[in-house]
């Protein structure tokens, strides 16, 4: 098997492994990428991330739902954990990347949506500062200032907790008006996001996945140019 043929085969295994939640298949293919000295970043973006892109499309078509997303995410992380330590800085080149602070606001212990979005940022090559869930509001401000992150992503799954988002946005924008703030979670609407002064919004965990996947799709397109 030639090098290009092998590359295609392993990318396919990574892609399918994510789509079909086959963690062992992903593990084996990721290890072979390293053993054969193939481009690791290529394997992440065109194998794992491409697989997740298809998962997002299946979610959009109501073929997949959150349990399937979670299982695909587990498979993706199996591959990412093996490959990511070996990504070379020169592979990344001048491709877009940055830092994001992410967390679920105080009073909300639901973190499925947040974890899915975190994964997408991870895959896209962002440095992710995950504050976890039930995070005191001032912690978001502190972490953004400490890390100088370009993005703060806030999640709330319940109407009863989303009001904390408005406070965080005000607190962060007061300190640093250039930070882009993304909101996500079931109760958040585009009107709410506007009202709270956010820069970006995702209607639900699934919609946020779509947005993140589109972001990765754009990243991959830029790479291909």
């Amino acid at each position: 098997m030639g090098k290009e043929e092998l590359r295609e085969e392993l990318l396919k295994q990574l892609h399918e492994g994510v789509v079909e939640f086959e963690e062992d298949q992903v593990k084996e293919a990721a290890q072979r990428v390293l053993d054969e000295g193939l481009n690791v970043y290529d394997a992440v973006m065109n194998g794992l991330a491409a697989g997740m892109q298809e998962v997002g499309e299946l979610y959009d078509q109501h073929e997949y739902f959150v349990p399937e997303l979670l299982m695909a995410a587990d498979a993706l992380y199996v591959g990412l954990d093996i490959l990511r330590p070996h990504i070379k800085m020169e592979d990344l080149g001048d491709k877009p990347k940055g830092q994001v602070v992410i967390g679920t606001v105080q009073g909300d212990v639901h973190d499925i949506g947040k974890n899915i979005i975190k994964m997408m940022f991870d895959v896209a090559g962002f440095t992710v500062h995950d504050l976890g869930r039930d995070v005191p509001l001032e912690k978001f401000v502190e972490e953004q200032l400490n890390t100088d992150s370009e993005i703060v992503a806030l999640s709330a799954m319940m109407t009863t907790t989303m009001m904390g988002m408005e406070k965080v946005i005000k607190m962060i924008k007061e300190k640093n008006p250039n930070v882009a703030i993304m909101l996500g979670g079931a109760p958040v609407t585009s009107d709410t996001a506007d009202l709270f002064g956010a820069d970006g919004y995702a209607e639900s965990a699934g919609n946020a996945v779509q947005e993140a996947i589109k972001m990765i799709g754009r990243l991959r397109e830029m790479q291909a140019k």
Partner: peptide, 16 residues
């Protein structure tokens, strides 16, 4: 249960 007795604003109880 977390009641958030000293938190500012409205926070509903959660399971820690």
């Amino acid at each position: 249960v977390s009641i958030y007795e000293n938190a500012e604003g409205i926070l509903f109880p959660t399971i820690p």
